[in-house]
Design a protein around this nucleic acid. Structure first.
Lengths: 387, 387
DNA sequence: CGAGACCGTGAATCACTAC
DNA sequence: GGTAGTGATTCACGGTCTC
C-alpha cells in the first residue's frame, strides 16, 4: 500500500528528480555549502545551487498567504499593524500550492537522507503545506503546536482568539533514521516526555528587532526560544541547519549559539542587513547544558464553566449558600442565575449578599451525602484530573 | 481576484452543483429531515438524500485510516508491478482526498448558508481535510487545538508525545453570517476570550462506553465536554446538528442535552445500537433560558430619538462627556448639537473628540443623583419597558 | 527607589442594518 | 446592490511615567 515506508521512498526519488530538472542557473554548484553565511537571493534558486543531501535540518517559515481584507481597528480605534508585505501576496490557492511544492522539492533535494524538516504556519497555509509535504513523500513525525502566552486578542468578538501556530516536523521518508534528542527534550520538561504542544511567549521586548524609528524590522520575527527547542530536539552539535526564509535570522542566531552551522537564504536586502549585524554579536556557548532551562509546569486555572462542560455540574443544578439563604441555578455557559442576578459565581454571590466581592468557589455549595459542600471541592477534583 | 470574499461565493455555488450532480439514489428526498434520529447507512448517500440547506451545524470525525478508505473509493486496480506501485501509493492519498471531497461536498449541500462545519483529525489526515475544505470554498474561521490532559505516552521515545488533535471550524463562505456565541464562550472561560487551544481530558472512566466484556465500544469515542463547547459555541437552541460519522453518538447526546436537534449517520450497526441506547437515557435541560447567553448584539435596536419621544430625555437637555469636557444639547428630532457639530449622538461624540468613531450611548452622560450616568442606562430602561 | 497607573502592540483571513 | 449609519469590541507584556 502507498502508506507503507517503501512507498514513501519511491515517491521521494521522483520529487528529487523534478527539483533537479527545474533547477535554473547554478550558483554554488560543486562548491562547499556556504556554512554560517547568509545568501541573498531567491530560496528555490539558491537551494538548487547547493549540493544534494548536504544539510541536516531545515527550518522554514514561509509566507502564510494571510489574505487580509481591509483594515482592522482595536476598540480604542488604533489600527492593527498587519502583514502587508508583497511577499505574502499570492493570486490564489493554486499559485500558493505551486510555490509550496517548488520550494519543498528544492529543500528535499538538499536534505540528507536522515535529515528532518520543520515548517511553521497558521491555518491560512498550514493545511496546504502539510498536504504537499505528504505528497512529496515526506513522513510526518509530529505536528507541534506553539501555544502563545500572549497572542493578539480577537477585537471584534467573532471568533476564538487565534492563540497558536502549527509546526510540522517531517523525516525524509518513513524509514529514515532521523535525529531526536529524547533525553534533552525530557529534561527540558521536568523529566516528563515533551509533548506536541509548546507554551512560549511571542517575540517582543528587547528581543524584538526595531529600526531607529522604533518600527519592527520584520513583521513576523520568531522567538529564539522556539528555535532553541526545535534545534535542540532534532540536531546534534556540528549539524548544518538551513533556513530558506531567513528573515532577520533567528534560526541562524540560535544555531550559532548552540554550536550548529547555519545557512540562511533571504531575498530582501533589508532583512539580510539586519540579520548580519545580529549574527555578528552572537557567541556560541561553551557549555550547552547551561542553556537547558527547564520549562515551568503550568498550573491550570479552572474556570467554573469547565465543571459544567465536564459534567461535574449540570445546567439547571441549584447552588445554595452555606446558610441556605440564597440559591442560584447553573447555566450551560458557566454563569449562574439567582432570582435577581445573572453572572459569574463570584458576581452573583456578591450581588445576593449586597457585598462588594465574593469568592464564589467558597460561597456556593451543593448537597453531597446530606451535607452542603462548597463547589471548590469539585474544582479540586477537576484540577487533580487536569494536572 | 479569486482570494476575495466574492470569489468564495462563486466557488461555493460550484461546489453545491457538483454535489447535486453526484447525488445517488434519494432516500429522504422532499421529506422532513430525520430530526433526533440515527440513520443507518453510508454518509454520502444519506446526506445526498437530505434537503439542501437544511442543517445548522455539522460536526464530523471522519475516519483517517487511509488504508481502509483506499479500497472503498479506488478506481479499478487489478495488477500492479514495481513501477506502478509508486502510482498506487500516490493513488492512496488521492483516494483519501477523493473520499474527503465527496463527503464534504455532500455536507456542503445540506448546510444552511449561515451554517458552520467542524472537522476533527490528527496529523495523519487533517492537512488533507483542511486543504479540501478550502478548495471547496469553505472559509476557515479557526483551527482549534484539543490539548489532551492524559494522552498516550510515546513508548519508543522517538517523537514528541502526540498530545493533541486539531479541529477545523469553517463557515460556508467568507461573508457568511455564521453563529458564534462569543459571550457564552467568554463566560465559560472566566470572562476571558476563549482561545483556540482547549485543554480537555480524553474520554475514559464512566463516560467511556464498553461492552459486557469490558471492551471499548468504539476506538475513538470523543469526550462529551468537547462537544459541549463546540455546540455551545456555534449553535443556538433549536438548531439542527448533523454528524455524518456518528459512532456511539456523542454529538447527539450533547446536542439533545443542550436543546438542539441532532441527525446522526452511521454505517456500523453495532455503533448505531450503542448510540440508540445511550441517547434514550439523555434528558434535555428543561429550562431553555439556561442554555442561551444573551448578547448585546442581539438586543432590539433602540433609536436615540425614542428616548426623546418617550420623555426619558427632553429637547434642550444637556448631555455631558464622562470627563465633563464636552457638552451637547438634545434636539426634538433625536439629534444633538454641540458648539461646533450637529448630528447623531455617535457623530457628535466622534466629532468633538476628533475620533474616527464613537459609541454615543457610552460616551454621553446625564447627571443622576449627583453622578454622571451614560445614556445607555436610559436605553436599558426603555428596552425593559418595551419587552 | 518602588509601586502602580498608563500606554503601546503582536502572522488577524475580526458587523450588520436600513435605505 | 451599493452606501451610509449605528454601535460592539481586547489580553498579556514591556516600557514609561507619576506619585
Amino acid at each position: 500500500m502507498s502508506m507503507t515506508k517503501t512507498g514513501r521512498t519511491v515517491k521521494r526519488r521522483a520529487g528529487e528528480n523534478d527539483a533537479a530538472e527545474a533547477e535554473p542557473t547554478p550558483v554554488h554548484q560543486d562548491a562547499k555549502p556556504p556554512f554560517d553565511r547568509i545568501v541573498e537571493g531567491d530560496s528555490i534558486r539558491v537551494m538548487a545551487s547547493l549540493p544534494p543531501e548536504s544539510v541536516d535540518m531545515i527550518f522554514a517559515d514561509p509566507p502564510y498567504n494571510l489574505q487580509l481584507q481591509g483594515d482592522l481597528h482595536r476598540p480604542n480605534h488604533s489600527k492593527v499593524d498587519g502583514v502587508e508585505e508583497a511577499w505574502d501576496k499570492f493570486a490564489d490557492f493554486a499559485s500558493y500550492d505551486r510555490f509550496t511544492a517548488d520550494w519543498l522539492k528544492a529543500a528535499r533535494r538538499i536534505l540528507k537522507p536522515d535529515g528532518t524538516i520543520w515548517v511553521i504556519g497558521s491555518y491560512h497555509n498550514i493545511f496546504r503545506v502539510g498536504a504537499t509535504l505528504q505528497d512529496l513523500g515526506f513522513w510526518i513525525l509530529n505536528d507541534v503546536v506553539w501555544r502563545k502566552t500572549n497572542p493578539m486578542p480577537n477585537f471584534r468578538g467573532r471568533r476564538f482568539t487565534n492563540a497558536h501556530e502549527t509546526m510540522i516536523w517531517c523525516a525524509k521518508d518513513a524509514d529514515a533514521r532521523y535525529c531526536f534528542n529524547y533525553e534533552a527534550m525530557k529534561s527540558l520538561n521536568d523529566d516528563l516526555q515533551m509533548r506536541s504542544d509548546w507554551l512560549l511567549p511571542i517575540c517582543n521586548g528587547g528581543e524584538r528587532l526595531k529600526d531607529e524609528n522604533g518600527k519592527k524590522a520584520h513583521p513576523t520575527q520568531k522567538p529564539e526560544a522556539l528555535l532553541h527547542r526545535v534545534i535542540l530536539a532534532a540536531t546534534k552539535p556540528g549539524a548544518v541547519v538551513l533556513d530558506p526564509f531567513f528573515g532577520t535570522g533567528t534560526t541562524g542566531v540560535v544555531a550559532k549559539r548552540l554550536g550548529r552551522h547555519f545557512i540562511g537564504i533571504e531575498r530582501e536586502h533589508s532583512y539580510v542587513d539586519v540579520a548580519r549585524k545580529r549574527l555578528a554579536k552572537v557567541r556560541p556557548v561553551e557549555d550547552e547544558s547551561l542553556l537547558a532551562t527547564p520549562s515551568k509546569r503550568e498550573e491550570p486555572r479552572i474556570p467554573f464553566g469547565w465543571l459544567v462542560e465536564r459534567g461535574l455540574l449540570h445546567p439547571g443544578t441549584v447552588l445554595v449558600s452555606p446558610n441556605n439563604q440564597w440559591t442560584a441555578k447553573v447555566r450551560a455557559d458557566g454563569t449562574v442565575i439567582s432570582a435577581d442576578h445573572r453572572g459569574s459565581i463570584h458576581q452573583v454571590g456578591a450581588a445576593v449578599q449586597g457585598a462588594p466581592a465574593c469568592n464564589g468557589w467558597q460561597f456556593w455549595c451543593v448537597p453531597m451525602e446530606g451535607k452542603l459542600v462548597p463547589i471548590d471541592f469539585l474544582r479540586q477534583r477537576l484540577r487533580a484530573e487536569l494536572s
